[in-house]
Design a protein around this nucleic acid. Structure first.
Length: 152
DNA sequence: AGGATGATGAAG
DNA sequence: TTCATCATCCTA
């Protein structure tokens, strides 16, 4: 995952201020911000700041723990389980997440974030963000060190 | 290394 | 109304 900080972060969509697109980033925390990119892909973020402030976390990858058969069906090009959701566009494809869920409350409804059943077996490592041009060296990317499921 | 593919925001 | 840009993925 990667953090995007808001109006002072040139790499963040919220850098432009409140627009039709960025409205939910300025809304209450715990909601889904989903945007369309490169004419083809949706990317999933969680809003993470109080209402009125901008800040969100881009979910770049995940380790499939359930629903793997359905994920394989949605991503026939992925041969290995590691390739099902090891990128922000791949992740939304594998999960069947689209912009229809933009603004959804993550504490209830179709798309929910739950606590892990057990603590992850990895250390969290902080690195620069990837795939951007502005502020690319800011240490705002958080990965499980050594996990086979992180994005490139 | 380059193409697919279209919304977004800013400028004119 | 145009234009550059883009928090990507895939094939080569």
């Amino acid at each position: 995952m990667e953090a995007y900080l808001g109006v002072h972060d040139r790499a963040a969509h919220a850098w432009h201020g409140i627009t039709d697109r960025t409205r939910v980033i300025f809304g209450p925390p715990g909601h889904a911000y989903i945007y369309f990119i490169y004419g083809m892909y949706d990317c999933l973020n969680f809003t993470a700041e109080p209402e009125g402030q901008a800040g969100a976390v881009l979910i770049r990858a995940l380790e499939p723990l359930a629903g793997i058969v359905a994920m394989r069906r949605r991503r026939p090009k992925a041969k290995r389980v590691e390739d099902l959701a090891n990128g922000p566009g791949k992740l939304t494809l594998a999960m069947g997440i689209t912009r229809k869920l933009n603004g959804a409350d993550l504490t209830r409804g179709a798309l929910q974030v739950r606590k892990l059943r057990e603590e992850p077996a990895f250390e969290t490592q902080v690195t620069p963000r990837i795939g951007i041009t502005h502020c690319a060296d800011w240490p705002l990317r958080f990965v499980f060190a050594g996990s086979r499921f992180v994005s490139r």
